[in-house]
Design a protein around this nucleic acid. Structure first.
Lengths: 210, 210
DNA sequence: TAGATTGTTAATCGATTAACAATC
DNA sequence: TAGATTGTTAATCGATTAACAATC
């Protein structure tokens, strides 16, 4: 029942947002309770795995009943940190950076955009989703004043390493990296890579071999 | 030495684009050969794993020498299908769809954008990266004429299932899904999900627990 | 040749699945 | 109460790592 006795494995962590999504859907559909068996069919997992996964964080269910959708959803919210939320900035206001800035869904999930930065004088000052694109020069000052958890990096490949180092040195806790390049930063900064071209290449491979 | 005796595991497949990226970098830096040991240090894997991975596709190396960068790169190119390439369309020309359309990197990796489709009359006809946004109505005709392998789906959540079914019924071989929703299509269509909000939530979890 | 490094077999480790007592 | 379903322990499966003979 306590919180996290042993290290939760990567495989489990990656399934958490998916559970969270399905629970949100069930909640929206006014489903009150769900068993691991029924959820497993919906999600294409085994019931066993679902119970194992949840048991990493303590028991949320009840024998003979299953899981209360509302309360399981809210537990996941806490586990994922969505309840307290995270502050973010975007570095690199190109097409992708702007698309992410406009993606209001993230705010709903507890990721609040606090600033957008770029080097290009032509777009500095332009407003995206209510925020003015700022000059990269003002980033250090900005981060000294504002509490920002996550830097979303959408800059060209050539400057990725430099920007990541800068963000890390300014106290950012996590980097969401969209560059087709692996980032190396100290252990106190967490990196999550998106690597879109890796993803489409996996798709290509699978098409070829399907 | 033959091609693929047994099914290659998911874990291996997901590492392939990463190998491909590192080999491209080495090639660019004019490195002629590399051993699994040196590559493993660069990539943060074990040398054993690298040799195991490559051996799924036949032996590309030479005892006492290692791997020839150029030829290993070109083998990976073939394995991933990048040599022959894939034709793609984008369905949903919102912020994200347009950002992907403008991302010229994909063309370099063998993913050729052939059309962009949307429902919104206000943007139909607008040119993105040299291609006019077309009306969704013209999609069936378009797919009958053009050989398209991949549909990149960047539509709002509510219409994702419908659009995916349509694409599948029109002979698309693979779907690259950016919607925060799992897609169900017949087995002859491959789906690769990006799920950006899942990804940022994993980052949030890791920050909280780092 | 001697040294280096592969491809592969065997050993280990970790994740998933199965089974079941506990209990709502 | 009887039936359902959990949380957890044990069994299985698969992926990673280690070891080494083969050989360039």
């Amino acid at each position: 029942m306590a919180i996290q006795y042993k290290k939760v494995s990567d495989a489990v962590i990656k399934r958490l947002p998916r559970y969270f999504r399905y629970l949100a859907e069930l909640k929206e559909a006014n489903v009150q309770r769900i068993s691991s068996g029924v959820l497993s069919e919906k999600m294409g997992l085994t019931a066993s795995q679902i119970r194992q996964d949840f048991s990493c964080f303590g028991g949320f269910g009840q024998q003979g009943y299953g899981y209360n959708v509302e309360s399981l959803h809210s537990e996941l919210k806490k586990i994922l940190g969505v309840d307290k939320g995270f502050n973010t900035i975007i570095i690199g206001a190109g097409n992708l950076g702007q698309a992410i800035a406009n993606h209001s869904k993230f705010e709903k999930r507890g990721y609040f955009l606090k600033g957008i930065f770029d080097l290009d004088a032509k777009i500095i000052g332009k407003k995206i989703n209510g925020l003015e694109i700022m000059n990269m020069d003002s980033l250090p000052d900005f981060l000294r004043k504002e509490k920002v958890d996550i830097a979303i990096i959408t800059v060209p490949r050539e400057v990725t390493a430099e920007v990541a180092d800068l963000a890390a040195s300014l106290g950012i806790k996590g980097i969401w990296n969209f560059s087709a390049m692996d980032i190396k930063v100290p252990d106190d900064v967490v990196v999550e890579n998106v690597h879109l071209s890796d993803s489409i290449m996996v798709l290509g491979y699978r098409i070829k071999n399907n």
